[in-house]
């Protein structure tokens, strides 16, 4: 068992304790909404990403290179860096916090068992992918993902999401976002290989790594180093970008919001 998995045992145990108070829900989920067997990919590997937030400068190079590499439609992103203004609890000064977001390639991905045609599935190497030829565009998986990592691609009318750039990994290349990251904040690798950079970093920073919304029991495999606790769940934030009003006092809409 890898270190990363062990990290989440505590969280899973807590989640299970909570769920047992709602026995009916648990029964329904155990019977039907269960993880199907994984298929495809290298069974010897478990890909994961570690994002060293201390190194992220919020330049959006990853956002742009991913967009170009994967031909995402305007206004929709397989990865994007959220940006926040936060007050420093110690000094009281405002500072900027960058949070790169992407699919977490969860170990217990809620997007997978909901798919009615098995178009969304998890490879044996842990990467969650969509078969766009089979997808019926029901958007059930889009609803099921707690991280907004999925969207319906306007061009293909099917579900779309980050794939860790499997096509590049297979060709021995790094994902576009990792390749283009200016600060070297994104580290991808095989958790099953103790010699990989990510395994070493997970071992080194074991106690400090955080994942998003751990209480959902999804066991995400994108780990954040230097994470501000306030952003683990949906942040209690003031949505400034949506509150800019024009001369007619109407909210100015995001230019791609129609998509």
């Amino acid at each position: 068992m890898d270190l990363a998995r062990r990290m989440f045992m505590g969280q899973l145990a807590r989640f299970a304790a909570g769920a047992s108070l709602v026995p009916l829900a648990t029964v329904a989920e155990a019977a039907i909404n269960e993880q199907p067997p994984r298929r495809g990919g290298d069974p010897a590997k478990r890909y994961a990403m570690l994002i060293d937030l201390r190194r992220c400068i919020g330049c959006q190079a990853c956002t742009v290179s991913c967009h170009l590499e994967n031909d995402a439609p305007l206004g929709k992103f397989r990865t994007i860096v959220s940006q926040y203004e936060v007050d420093d609890p110690e000094t009281g000064d405002m500072s900027t916090f960058f949070l790169p977001r992407l699919c977490n390639h969860c170990d217990n991905p809620p997007c997978v068992p909901v798919c009615p045609v098995q178009a969304t599935y998890q490879q044996e190497d842990g990467i969650v992918v969509v078969d766009a030829e089979r997808c019926v565009g029901c958007a059930y998986c889009v609803q099921a993902c707690p991280y907004d990592a999925r969207f319906i691609n306007d061009k293909t009318q099917t579900a779309d999401k980050c794939t860790f750039c499997t096509h590049r990994l297979e060709a021995g290349l790094l994902p576009a976002c990792v390749e283009s990251c200016v600060g070297g904040a994104r580290i991808i690798g095989d958790l099953n290989d103790p010699e990989s950079t990510i395994s070493k970093m997970v071992a080194e920073h074991h106690g400090e790594l955080k994942v998003l919304q751990p209480e959902k029991g999804t066991s995400p495999h994108v780990f954040y180093l230097g994470m501000d606790e306030r952003f683990i769940d949906r942040p209690e934030a003031f949505a400034s970008i949506w509150d800019i009003h024009g001369k007619d006092n109407k909210e100015l809409h995001y230019e791609f919001s129609g998509h």
């Binding site: 994007i80 609890p89 405002m94 934030a237 003031f238 949505a239 970008i241």
Partner: peptide, 9 residues
Amino acid sequence: SAVIEILAP
């Protein structure tokens, strides 16, 4: 804890 979201999809 004042947090302002500047950029998010």
